[in-house]
Design a protein around this nucleic acid. Structure first.
Ligand SMILES: [Mn+2]
Ligand SMILES: [Mn+2]
Length: 318
DNA sequence: TACCTTA
DNA sequence: TAAGGTAACCCATAT
DNA sequence: ATATGG
């Protein structure tokens, strides 16, 4: 049976958008369609946009749903509407990429119609492209590790940060791990923020080698939680908060309170897939936990000597 | 998803 | 006309 | 040098 006029024209923020194949199923197991994705992005816009402002994007697109082929996209295609904001980067080999900037509802809706399920913003803004405005502690459970282990390691990260006079903001990755954002003044280059997180990782592995690991070789991670500091290097990105994942039940990466994660006594802490695309109302009803981040950038100046030994300008002298 | 290239 | 291809990175680290 | 992982 063929669905009739599976398309609609909508007006978003003064822009006319042609939406296509609205009934196409993107998450077969959950029965969620492109219409659902568009509705989600439209509604979540006020929560999401602050985290995308001035941040060039990498997209992951799934035009035939999460069980079919995907592709990454950085360069804005020529067929994109001319009102889209872009940021031009010319690499050494003079290749040019026009990165997309998503700074309004209309752009989000257009992206969703393109079946761009995931948005991965830079950790730096176009104001200071080489200086990230946050570092991320990316906690990835290896096979055999449980989410409780991830939470345990996250708790150690929290205490360690407190020890260093810093504050971190946790979110569910939406897959199986946790991302802890550490807002910074945009004055430390990527190399250094990566080194900083690597230092945190070393301390935690030293303190808890049973469950934390730095091993780059998957085989040596066994049932442990991998502290992936390399995720902070230039060109790497992490899925933005409030972005859905291309996994069976459309779980969403959602900021959480430390107290929701680390539950004392008999209660059950928040679980990795507690929020899905279908839970848009629940997600919107939660406080915007990450928004204060940008009002509270932090300094690494005092603790830099602990991990930046011989860093300086970064290059080898000879 | 949309476009381009090739048969 | 239709089928097939393309749409991104790359480097820190280990061996 | 080459492989690996994310
Ligand atoms: Mn991760
Ligand atoms: Mn990772």
């Amino acid at each position: 049976m063929k669905m009739k006029a599976d398309r609609h024209t909508v007006l978003v923020g003064g822009k006319r958008l042609e939406l296509s194949r609205l009934n196409k199923v993107l998450w077969p197991e959950a029965g969620l369609t492109k219409a659902d994705l568009i509705a989600y992005y439209w509604q979540i816009a006020p929560r999401l946009l602050p985290h995308l402002y001035k941040r060039p994007l990498t997209l992951t697109r799934y035009p035939d749903g999460i069980e079919e082929g995907m592709f990454y996209q950085k360069d804005t295609p020529s067929y994109a509407p001319d009102w889209l904001k872009t940021y031009r980067v010319v690499s050494d080999d003079s290749r040019e990429i026009r990165y997309l900037l998503a700074e309004d509802e209309a752009t989000l809706v257009w992206l969703a119609n393109q079946a761009a399920i995931e948005l991965h913003p830079w950790m730096s803004t176009t104001d200071h492209p080489d200086y990230p405005s946050y570092a991320v502690v990316d906690l990835d459970p290896a096979t055999g590790a449980e989410f409780g282990d991830v939470v345990e390691i996250a708790g150690l990260v929290r205490v360690l940060l407190q020890e260093l006079g810093l504050k971190g903001y946790p979110k569910l990755s939406g897959a199986s791990g946790i991302h802890i954002y550490i807002p910074l003044w945009p004055r430390y280059p990527y190399r250094l923020t990566s080194r900083f997180v690597g230092y945190l990782g070393e301390l935690i592995v030293k303190a808890y080698p049973q469950k934390a690991t730095n091993e780059r070789l998957v085989a040596k991670r066994d049932g442990k939680v991998y502290i992936d500091h390399l995720q902070n290097l230039p060109g790497k990105t992490i899925v933005a908060p409030y972005v859905p994942r291309p996994l069976p039940h459309a779980p969403v990466s959602v900021p959480v309170e430390w107290e929701e994660l680390i539950v004392t006594g008999s209660g059950r802490g928040v679980q990795p897939h507690d929020f899905t695309l279908a839970d848009i109302k629940v997600i919107l009803a939660r406080p915007p936990l990450f928004e204060q981040m940008y009002q509270a950038p932090q300094s690494l100046d005092k603790i830099m000597p602990l991990f930046a030994a011989g860093e300086k300008e970064g290059q080898k002298v000879h």
